[in-house]
Design a protein around this nucleic acid. Structure first.
Lengths: 191, 191
DNA sequence: CGCTAACTCTAGCATTGCTAGATTCAGTTT
DNA sequence: AAACTGAATCTAGCAATGCTAGAGTTAGCG
């Protein structure tokens, strides 16, 4: 009988996702320092050891939230880019990026600020990470060395803005002009 | 007798610095997760409670390392900028920034990646932080709204590059062209 | 010499991540 | 239907963490 095993695996996958979702919710509402194995186990209504049946350790759970978040962000950037006129592609990507960072600060933190074991450069780089990066490259045109470099740079700038915005350094009111400047900078990039 | 009190205060200040230095060394050699109150107390040859006579908690120690690091980086950027011809100011700042990040990864992590209570925007912003920011602004010219915005953007880009370099995403060989692109982008910024 | 106050340490608490071993439960076989 | 087997889950607990109360020591003063 295969269906019994199948059902078990499906339930296992569901619980896997349940843990990730619970961790993310907990982080968004109470901050990452509140995401402990006990609280998380309590929230998913299992005991602590169950968590370790799905993830090697707490860091792996945070990394899973990070990968999920990056996938979501990639998707949102893609939708924003496709919905905008071609000439506004870069701006659409930027706005979408910053919107995600503002709307999901804990996920964003897991993605780009907290210590992580997620590899960005190697063969086992998760697909969502590649998708996110390629999405930014797409705003500049076809994939080539120059556009990849531009993508990395604007990514860095966006990350910097996101952090500074969150810490309150940049007043929200000047944000639009700041974004204008960023977009102008990269749109007029010398060949 | 005032000298007794003075001496005590001097010794206290010395020990304060000793703690910061020890924490930084420990972090650079073994990583921040190895900087525990016990190891740190052991290294400075005092008991744990002494640490709390100087800092509210472990995070405050890390923040002190961060502020010290930012001060150092500001100084190095300043020297690099003054040593370079005027037209190469931006490049000098960038090179200096990335060199510091590469040379002191743990300090850099405390400065810009790890959770912190250091305020960048308020009245009690430490002087070294202001100095660092103003130094970047100086590369663009006198302090005004536009140059401050440019400084924030290039700062973000540099941070992004530093993180990507460290994680191995960017091959070191292409780094020079990448820097050329960044400098060109910001040097030719539209008014 | 003795008193006081500042300083420092020992010892321990609560909480953390993580795990071994007991226990329960579901599916299969007799 | 009952017993067996192996997987799944929990209880209980360990070592390490940040932090602190209270004891003990030391240094400066009369």
């Amino acid at each position: 009988m295969v269906t019994a095993t199948e059902r078990r695996e499906r339930q296992r996958a569901e619980r896997h996702q349940l843990i990730i979702t619970a961790a993310r919710e907990l982080a968004e509402t109470e901050g990452w320092e509140a995401v402990t194995t006990r609280k998380l186990a309590d929230k998913v209504e299992y005991s602590q050891p169950v968590l370790y049946g799905h993830f090697a350790n707490m860091e792996a759970i945070r990394d899973a939230v990070a990968v999920e978040g990056i996938g979501e962000m990639a998707e949102q950037m893609r939708e924003a880019r496709l919905a905008a006129p071609e000439s506004e592609g870069i701006r659409a990507i930027c706005t979408s990026y910053l919107a995600f960072a503002a709307a999901h600060p804990a996920a964003y933190q897991a993605m780009f600020s907290l210590p992580t074991k997620v590899k960005w450069a190697s063969a086992e780089t998760p697909a969502p990470l590649r998708a996110a990066f390629n999405e930014i490259v797409s705003a500049f045109g076809p994939y080539n060395e120059r556009n990849a470099a531009l993508a990395e740079l604007i990514w860095g700038s966006l990350h910097g803005m996101a952090v500074l915005l969150r810490s309150g350094r940049i007043p929200q009111e000047q944000q639009e002009q700041r974004l204008d400047l960023l977009v102008a900078l990269f749109a007029d990039a010398p060949a």
